[in-house]
């Protein structure tokens, strides 16, 4: 069984407007949980009417601070997204890759993540 896990943004957020960073965090948490198990994910944006860069930065851009580019590319598939939103997502992803290129920033975040998991 190597079927991708289906995640529906509408269901996770409970709204057609993906505006709030907090809602983006809920989507990130679900994707991250699956990626940690190296599962494949199909993320559906069906019935979503509006998206902001803040939402996508939190939901998807943030992944680049915790996972390798290749793992995201191989495991995450986007579906049911309008073309202009795909363009926005591409910019978010390109910006995130650039953002986490800074080795100090990447190192610091990894260290914080390790400390968090030590505590919990």
């Amino acid at each position: 069984m190597n079927e991708p896990i289906s995640l529906r943004v509408y269901e996770i957020v409970g709204n057609e407007f993906c505006v709030a960073s907090d809602d983006g965090q809920k989507v990130f948490d679900q994707i991250a949980k699956a990626l940690r198990e190296d599962k494949k994910i199909k993320l559906s944006f069906a019935n979503i009417e509006s998206l902001t860069s803040a939402f996508l930065n939190t939901a998807i851009g943030q992944l680049y601070g915790s996972f390798q580019n290749d793992q995201i590319k191989n495991n995450l598939e986007i579906s049911d997204m309008e073309q202009d939103d795909m363009m926005l997502l591409k910019r978010v992803v390109d910006t995130a890759k650039e953002y986490f290129k800074d080795p100090d920033r990447f190192e610091k975040l990894n260290k914080e993540a390790m400390e968090d998991s030590d505590v919990s």
């Binding site: 939190t58 601070g65 926005l88 978010v92 910006t95 995130a96 953002y99 986490f100």
Partner: peptide, 18 residues
């Protein structure tokens, strides 16, 4: 383009440019 004051684990900096 490329400038942001964000420093945390969530990247940013494209809202105003868009």
């Amino acid at each position: 383009i490329g400038n942001t004051t964000k420093t945390g684990k969530v990247p940013g900096g494209i809202g105003l440019k868009l």
